[in-house]
Nucleic acid binder design. Structure first.
Lengths: 227, 227
DNA sequence: CCGGATAGAATATGATCAAATTTTACGCTG
DNA sequence: CAGCGTAAAATTTGATCATATTCTATCCGG
């Protein structure tokens, strides 16, 4: 199947052993998180079976999971599409992200080792390169990787899961905004976060995280209202 | 199919028009929320196709959705089961519920009408009857209905969705605790919530909600650690 | 402008294959 | 001779697909 080929190019991990519906889920999740799918775009089962070269059942299962994640919406009349966000949606997500993710930052600050902070700093440097190069897709991937790596040390899988769910919701819209404004104006409070981690300053980390979120989500809200 | 029969007994709503996978999802969701499934219990696809009288595909889709909801867990080796909660899980859920649900209470307090408050009060009276009768299943249903009805006025579908996801996670464990302790010792801060709503006192509503959550979840944490 | 025919897409089933667990039987050791 | 451990077969369960049915939307004719 075609999915295997994609994986083989990227990295030959043990993902081949995973069931196909899991691979389809991960593939679609990446496409949503990193903006290969446009808000409002219809998602059809048959289109995916054709493009991915797999049967209908795994595709159906992956789509159901993504609907429960809020990453896709079921439009009642059997249609599935990528969500368009309203101003109210964004406002709710700002609240939820700040509540959840500042706490994740606090907990990670308490647990993280120096080596792990070094790794985060390396990620952030690569992120800066992406911004300089104007690579929107690369920016989105590394930004996600940075937050995921940071939160992974919080020892709070349920909170991480809630956060991931929120990222899936705004992924496509964030891509649109980045594409419109370019990477230059993108927020990067990661330096502040890293400083706070080095100081083991829990509240400073929380504040920096909240500012990172407010800046990014605020930009998205402005862009979607004006456009 | 057998699902139709169950619906016909309860209430002949327009659920018959919904696709079967949706009906299966709702059926399983109820069973999880109201404790018909025990933590640790294995959930098999074929068992559900037999007991519900439907094909495999709709059952598979419903299970995938519930896994994404955190209501069921995928045990790696293809097995699916009802989650057993750790102390850390409960602690995270207390934090998340208080963050999200107090905000939902705040927003509802600002929007709710007097007639809607009357309806909540009626729900709470029926809840008291359930506690007096020792009807655990009825208590769980009405407790859920009360919170759902309250939050529905917050005009915040994304936050409601996050909260619902959390309820699905602790549903089975809550049932165990209620069954062990009986309904007498169950928390009911709903009177305080209703008073706060009538006063249109946003912060009082938030505090009462937080106390309701802390009390219920705390009891669950104690029970699961000692048992 | 409205209403029926048609095409296309989604839903649902059963069949088939693959994987994992359990059971059983055999052999080895104490 | 008894008990334990291991290995292989059988059973159970999951994963995928191909096919039939049902529903929706669009288009064409009146």
């Amino acid at each position: 199947m075609d999915l295997i080929k994609n994986k083989a190019v990227a990295a030959l991990t043990d993902d081949e052993k995973r069931p196909v519906h899991e691979q389809v889920y991960r593939t679609l999740k990446s496409q949503i998180l990193f903006g290969d799918l446009v808000p409002g775009q219809p998602v059809t089962i048959q289109g995916l079976t054709d493009s991915l070269g797999v049967g209908m059942t795994p595709v159906r299962e992956a789509i159901r999971r993504l609907i429960s994640d809020g990453a896709l919406i079921f439009q009642g009349n059997r249609r599935v599409s990528v969500p368009l966000l309203s101003a109210g949606d964004i406002e709710q997500m700002i609240f939820a992200r700040i509540s959840i993710e500042t706490e994740l930052s606090r907990r990670s600050t308490a647990n993280i080792t120096n080596a792990e902070i070094d790794y985060l700093e390396k990620l952030d440097q690569r992120l800066d390169n992406m911004i300089a190069d104007g690579d929107v897709s690369g920016y989105l991937r590394l930004n996600h990787a940075f937050h995921q790596a940071l939160y992974s040390h919080a020892d709070a899988p349920i909170l991480v899961d809630l956060a991931e769910r929120l990222w899936l919701r705004f992924g496509p819209s964030l891509r649109i905004v980045c594409g419109r404004f370019g990477t230059q104006s993108l927020p990067d409070r990661h330096k502040d976060i890293i400083l706070a981690l080095r100081d083991r300053d829990v509240e400073k980390a929380a504040v920096a995280t909240a500012q990172d979120i407010e800046q990014g989500m605020g930009m998205m809200g402005d862009a979607l209202n004006n456009g």
